[in-house]
Simulated scan of single mutants.
Amino acid sequence: MILVQTIGVFAALMSVIGVVLAASKAKRPLLRALGSAVCGAASLGAVNLLEGYTGVSIALNYATAFVAVVLGAPGVVTMLLLRVLLLF
């Protein structure tokens, strides 16, 4: 169990480092990172609001919130695709 947690923390740290490096190359890095975080949280909320129509939802927990805020909308789309693929 310790190995799995260590791998998860390492992957989370690498994601954060990648986002920080990408945001630092923008003209306004803090505004860019904040915009990406808001977009990710909004897309996670939209997926859960449309669950009645689509039948697919993403559980809201620390891991999904982290992915939505750090990676933004592409992270939510990836989680959604993984959820759809794992249903079948």
Score class of each variant (00 low, 15 high):
Val19Ile: 10
Thr54Gln: 08
Tyr53Pro: 00
Ala26Arg: 11
Val20Gln: 05
Pro29Val: 03
Gly18Met: 03
Arg28Glu: 14
Val16Ser: 02
Ala12Phe: 03
Ala59Glu: 15
Ala46Leu: 15
Val69Asn: 05
Leu81Trp: 01
Met79Asn: 04
Phe10Leu: 13
Arg32Ser: 10
Phe10Ile: 08
Leu60Asp: 08
Leu49Asp: 11
Val4Asp: 15
Val4Gln: 14
Ala23Lys: 00
Gly72Pro: 05
Pro74Asp: 07
Ala23Trp: 01
Leu82Met: 11
Leu49Val: 08
Leu34Pro: 02
Ala37His: 07
Val4Cys: 00
Ala73Gln: 10
Ala68Glu: 01
Gly52Phe: 03
Ser57Glu: 10
Ile17Ser: 10
Thr54Cys: 04
Lys27Gln: 09
Leu34Ile: 06
Met14Gly: 02
Ala46His: 08
Ala73Phe: 13
Leu44Asp: 02
Leu34Ser: 15
Asn61Phe: 09
Ala11Gly: 00
Met1Phe: 12
Leu34Arg: 09
Ser24Thr: 09
Ala63Ser: 10
Ile2Trp: 08
Gly52Met: 05
Pro74Gly: 02
Val70His: 04
Leu80Val: 06
Phe10Met: 12
Gly45Cys: 05
Leu44His: 04
Gly75Gln: 01
Glu51Gly: 09
Leu30Asp: 08
Ala42Met: 12
Lys27Ala: 12
Val84Arg: 12
Leu49Cys: 07
Leu44Trp: 02
